[in-house]
Structure formats: structure tokens, C-alpha cells
Nucleic acid binder design. Structure first.
Lengths: 342, 342
DNA sequence: TTGAAAGCGATACCAA
DNA sequence: TTGGTATCGCTTTCAA
């Protein structure tokens, strides 16, 4: 009776590969993981066996001994409509995925409903993943503190509020971006300025506003015309209406996201204001929407794709030499993109 | 010397829990997994030990023996801008997540670039996940065939092209939806009808068009004014322009998605047509965008949230009694939502 | 370069 | 109800 090399039921195991290749399990394992310290002869035999059997290592078994999972989490602390409707999120997803694909890592999506961070942290601490990428971080979610406490490799996209030195993060210089927007309006001769700022509990919201105020006040003008938006179009619409009601004479408007700027454009249109004739408008992000508004948006470019890709690579670096690595912070410069609205 | 109950380095293991609780590993395991066949006394002791140690089972070890991973994949065969920009996707993500959260399952996002389905299938076949949810399925991606071959529990959102009987899926009756749209325009007295259809290689695109043609031709009118769009706003804009050029006298337009309808509205505005005065417009989906266009969109409701939630529960049912379950197909009825555009 | 053997941390069978 | 033990499939010393 000839030995049956294929398991009756399940997927082929390393053992079967080894038997078919005529080597030991240890050698087969080495051959599969890089092929170091394996004779060419054995290597080919194993590769051949892997191919004919259609062998794939069992990830659980591997992970049990290596203590790696080859999975990375994308943590989104606030999974409401806003996040998914925002093109920012789509870009993020694509960029993360592009990098992970290169190394055959899997992307686990972790959405934490507000107030349920505990669940998220428990999950993270179980070490079900090798590392985490955090986006859309809010001031009070304590994620930064907890992650740095956990010792789990993590990279933030967008500067975290706390533990700024001990964490790795990637961001753009949002303060400089706010300055650029203000300067553009000033250069265009606008003097009655207003802004639709982002959420106060997000670094991007606070920083863009800070840069804006700095330049506006530096020019001897008032920076008191401020409304908060939530980065959505409808938020921008509402804020735009409110600002127009309070400051009917405004001639320059900065919205801290293109989506909000699009909403503001609608508010201006409703009110019969021409853009950029009556009011010049500057947005932020430079995502597709900026080219689709009418008029098209002059905006501050936020290099989302590059940022996220860089953040992901930073995370992979940390995973590669775990523990050894100092936290890194990378700041991308913003740039003004001129179109028709200002 | 007292015995050290906590491991020096890593996370606590079941062994330590058992020792602390004064029971065997087997009993501790039972206590943790449902607590059946465990005395109340032992149960409390184990629970107590788990708490003080902060014990979390090692998922890899567990998965090695149970042969479950407690993870399900969301498979998106086409991860380009379109998918992420589409609010449909955001709804899907949220709905899936809501259901998975209930059972502590994790969501693994699998994006297959066109032409790289092989990689995806290899991954799926490695059984790194317990089941798959497939959205945005295209005619030629062979996903349906392969999945049903793999024997991996899977549920499609949107009718698959092949293996319709042997797979589980959830869909709306898109043919009926197309009929509803056509009927609405006819009822409004429109006679020169055109449609912006969805991609021909997606079931939703084909079915909505089929229903449309059925009613339009049934009324003795021509259904030859058709342009294909890719479900995006810019696609709708282009298609709208083309249709207006070819059929300057059209008075009724059906777009197979709200996003395309929004694009078409822009094309109509450009051309100086009033809506619904000159041209009545009906969209499809009834996502937020339908309420944000001007005029607001009369549209066919596509219950994405319910569909996806149902699909996810179907998948969980399959996972619960694996193998035993017959494939199920669920079809939700569409409904016309009246607003201002038609 | 190779292979024997010792785990990794859980679950599940079976006898007690 | 309990605990001993085999087992899951792989990686990784350690000798040879």
C-alpha cells in the first residue's frame, strides 16, 4: 500500500510538504521562510512540493510561535457618517492598503463608537494585531495615552493631542496651511475675513484656525468671525449661512475643508453673493471635490495619500525592528493650489 | 519561596489562570467558554482569576484548535476611487460592523485590484477568515465561482452573476426599481425618455435597465436613449451631456444612481433646462445626496443598510452551523421616494 | 546543511 | 463535574 501523501480532509500541512520533498519538517520550514541555510537541492524539492500540494502555511500555527499576526489595524475612533462620507477616508484606505499589499499584511478595520473605546483597547491589548494606524483622532479619546502604555507599535495620522514626543505620527503643518489661506485672501485685497473652522477637539481643526488667526490678526484685522463646522458639506452650509447673517459684508472666507467650502459656496449662492467677485473662498485638502465645485476651489493641499503611505511605512519599520525604534514624527508642508474661487 | 503566578514577560496564559483559580487548565477553559459543565464554585474562582490577571485568550492558539478565526472578510473586488467615494460603501461598512460588533468578530478588509483576484483567492483559500461578504461584484471577476468552489461561507450583497442558486445573496429587486422609475416619469406625462444606466457588468446596472426598458417599451415608447455611467457623479455629468446632445428634446431622465443623477442635474443646469419643468429626473438609491441636490431628487430607495445587515446575519448563521445550511437568497422590495425632481 | 524534539497556548476527548 | 493528555501546525534551538 502506498502512503497517502494528501490529507483526507483539510488543507495540506507542512508535514506533508516535507514528506513529499523528502526532507524534515524543519528543513521544509526553513526553505519556506527565506530559504536560508538550506541546500539548493532541498530548496527546490520543497518549492516543488509546495506547488504541487498547493500548500499555504496555517497562519494561526505560525502566529502561535512567532508571536506575530501579520495583521495591522486601522483604527477609526469615530465611525459615523462623517468619516465614511469624507473622501479623506477613502484615500486613507487605499493608501494603507497599497503599502500592506506589498508585504502580504492584512488590514483589520477597527471602528470605535464614541464611548466604546474600552472595547477597542481591550481588543488591541489582546495583541490580535501587530500594530495600529490611528486616524481621525479626537482630543478626549485617550487613545494616544493608552497605546503608548500598551507598547503596541502605533502611528497616528494627524498629530495626537497627547504624548506627542513618545508616539510616532505623520501630519501636515496645519498651522502653516491656515497661514497660507489667510495670506491668499489678504493678497487678494480682502479685508473682511471669516472662517469656518474644523472641530475644536481635532488637531487639524485647532491648528488651521491658529495659523489663520495669526496672519489675520498680524495684518491688524479682526479674526473674530469664526464658526465651527464638522468637516462635512452640510456643516459648511450651516456655518456659511450663519456667518453671512452675522457678517453680511464679509469679502473673504476660509473653510477648513473642501467639503465645508462646498457647503459654504452653496450658502453664498443662496445669498446671491458671487464668488470670487463678492466673496473670495479658500478651502482645505485639495481632494476631488475642489475641482467639482463651481467655481472651482482655491485650496490648501493636504497630501493625504503621501501622509498615509508614509505613516504605514513608519509602522512597518517599527514592526521590523520592534522595540529598537525611536518614535518618529514627520511633517509634510502644505501648499496653496490656485483655482477660481480666490 | 512563593511561586510566581504571573509570567515574567508576556501576557497571562490559561495555565496561570488555572493555577490561580486552583483548577485544571481544562476546567478553566470550560469556565471561560460558556461555563457549561463547571461547578459554580470553580466558575467563580476562574472568573476571579481572569479578572485579577487580566487574562485574554490567545487567539492564535485558540484558532489553531477550533479552526475558526473569528474574523470575516469584506471583499471589495474593485477598490478604486469610485467605491470609496460612494456613500454606498460607507453605509455598507457601518452596517457590517454593527452586526460583527455584537459577536466580537473582527472585520478584515480585502480589496482586490482588478486583475489581482488571484491573490485574493489565495488569501481566502488559506482560511485566514471564517467567511466572506462580497460587495460590488463584477461579472467577470469569477469570485462567485471560486468562492462556491472553496466551500468558504460567503454572502453576496447584490445578486452574483453566476451560481445564483448555490450561493447566498441579498439584493433589492432592481428590475422592479427600474420599472418604478419609468412608471413615475410616464405618470408625470413624460414621453421622450432617456436613461443613464449603470455598468453593464454589474447586476444592479443590468437589472435597473431591464426594468426601465420593459415599462418604457411597454408604453409604446422608444427605450433607445441610453448612456452608461459608472455610478459616479462625473460619470453622470458626462452621460447627461451626451444624452442632451443626442436627444435635445428629452423630457424625462432616469439615472441608475443618485450620484449619477446629481451629475445629470448639473448637465441639465448647464444646458439651461429646468428640473422638473423641462426635464423630470428620477435617481436611484436614496442616499443622503438625494436630499442635497437642487432640486431634491425623486428616487428609488435601495435599502443598503438593511440589506447589508441582513447579509451579515446570513453569514453569521452559516458560520454557526457550518455546512448544514442551505444557501439563502433574500430580495428586498424597492420603493419610490418622491421629492422635487420628478 | 540537516533533523529530532521541544515548545507556542489553547481546546476537547475520555476516563475517573 | 473534573483533570490528564493528545492535538492543532508551525518555528526554532541544539546536536549531529
Amino acid at each position: 500500500m502506498s502512503e497517502d501523501l494528501t490529507a483526507p480532509g483539510g488543507a495540506p500541512t507542512l508535514d506533508e510538504v516535507a514528506r513529499l520533498a523528502g526532507v524534515s519538517r524543519a528543513t521544509a520550514s526553513r526553505a519556506i521562510n527565506g530559504g536560508h541555510r538550506v541546500s539548493p537541492r532541498a530548496l527546490t524539492a520543497v518549492e516543488e512540493a509546495v506547488r504541487t500540494l498547493g500548500y499555504r502555511p496555517n497562519p494561526a500555527a505560525r502566529s502561535l510561535v512567532t508571536r506575530r499576526t501579520d495583521a495591522v489595524a486601522l483604527v477609526v475612533p469615530e465611525p459615523d457618517e462623517r468619516v465614511f462620507a469624507d473622501p479623506f477616508f477613502g484615500h486613507t484606505l487605499r493608501s494603507v492598503n497599497r503599502v500592506l499589499d506589498e508585504r502580504d499584511l492584512q488590514l483589520v478595520l477597527l471602528l470605535a463608537r464614541p464611548g466604546e473605546e474600552g472595547r477597542l483597547l481591550r481588543y488591541l491589548s489582546r495583541r490580535n494585531i501587530d500594530g495600529a494606524l490611528v486616524v481621525s483622532h479626537h482630543r478626549h479619546d485617550r487613545l494616544a495615552e493608552h497605546l503608548s502604555g500598551l507598547g503596541l507599535p502605533a502611528v497616528f495620522v494627524g498629530r495626537p493631542w497627547a504624548a506627542v514626543q513618545t508616539l510616532s505620527w505623520v501630519d501636515t503643518d496645519n498651522v502653516a496651511g491656515g497661514r497660507l489661506a489667510a495670506q491668499r485672501l489678504l493678497d487678494g485685497g480682502r479685508r473682511r475675513l471669516a472662517t469656518i473652522a474644523g472641530p475644536a477637539d481635532m488637531a487639524a481643526g485647532a491648528d488651521r484656525l491658529a495659523g489663520w488667526c495669526e496672519v489675520v490678526e498680524g495684518a491688524g484685522l479682526s479674526a473674530s468671525a469664526v464658526r465651527r463646522g464638522d468637516f462635512t458639506e452640510s456643516g459648511g452650509l450651516a456655518a456659511g449661512r450663519a456667518l453671512l447673517a452675522e457678517h453680511p459684508d464679509l469679502d473673504g472666507l476660509f473653510a477648513a475643508s473642501d467639503l465645508m467650502a462646498a457647503g459654504a459656496l452653496r450658502a453664498l449662492a443662496e445669498a446671491g453673493r458671487s464668488v470670487p467677485g463678492d466673496v473670495a473662498v479658500v478651502g482645505y485638502d485639495d481632494l476631488e471635490v475642489a475641482e467639482r465645485t463651481s467655481p472651482t476651489l482655491t485650496t490648501v493641499r493636504n497630501p493625504v495619500g503621501e501622509m498615509v503611505e508614509r505613516a504605514t511605512r513608519l509602522l512597518l519599520d517599527q514592526l521590523a525592528d520592534v522595540g529598537e525604534r525611536e518614535p518618529e514624527q514627520v511633517v509634510f508642508p502644505p501648499a496653496l493650489v490656485s483655482r477660481d474661487s480666490a
